[in-house]
Amino acid sequence: MQTLNFQQLLRYQDQLIDGTLHTLLLTLVAALIGTAIGVAGAAAVRGGPRPVRWAIRGYVELIRNTPSLIQLFVVFFVLPGFGLRMGAFEAAAIALGLYFGAYCTEIVRAGLDAIPGSQVEAGQCLGLTRWQVFRHVVLPPALRSVYPAFTSQFVLLLLGTSLASQISAEELFHTGGFIETRTYRSFEVYAVICGIYFALVMIFKLLFAAVGHLAFRWPVRR
């Protein structure tokens, strides 16, 4: 019987660190793209002109109802045919950003819907512009109410970046595959990779709790 042996993996420490950093970077870039899409998309779905609303609805439905892996392939293999040439990492960031953006649109929209119209009215009566009402009156409490949903979606995104290995973007999961082919220590490699993902998620959970604590300080009456 074969015994566990993590010894060989130590040689690949640098690759593991590099893969972890790339996973982090990929997650953060995709989250940034997606959050921007989400806020703008949610605002436009509620207040934009009809063609824009339809376009966003179509985008959200398309992304949420198709496999992310295929979305990744489309960006990486199909877009270059239209002259949009990019590396695996860039393609993964864009595909995952679009993926996260669709979910974010729905999450932020739910938050905006939860703000009563009387708040908007109060803002208008103070002579605020539509943008000022959105930015200062509606958005902050809306974000607070969907913050937990946003953070769990973020965790799904972080774990989902492993899909990028399929277009050979050099993130953590891809690094795992690379080490495995050299050591044949499949179980050990993926146990370590798994532990790293787990640790990353835990760190982000702590971080989100702290950020939420700082950003949403106002008391609420229950």
Binding site: S118, Q119, E121, A122, G123, Q124, C125, L126, G127, L128, T129, H136, V137, P140, P141, R144, F216, W218, V220
Partner: peptide, 21 residues
């Protein structure tokens, strides 16, 4: 309209203060 609204204030039954400020 915005300038007008600043000259004609309204107070509501439900206060409508902004809870996060």
């Amino acid at each position: 309209l915005r300038g007008f609204r600043q000259r004609v204030g309204i107070v509501f039954q439900a206060f409508n203060l902004f809870p996060h400020m």
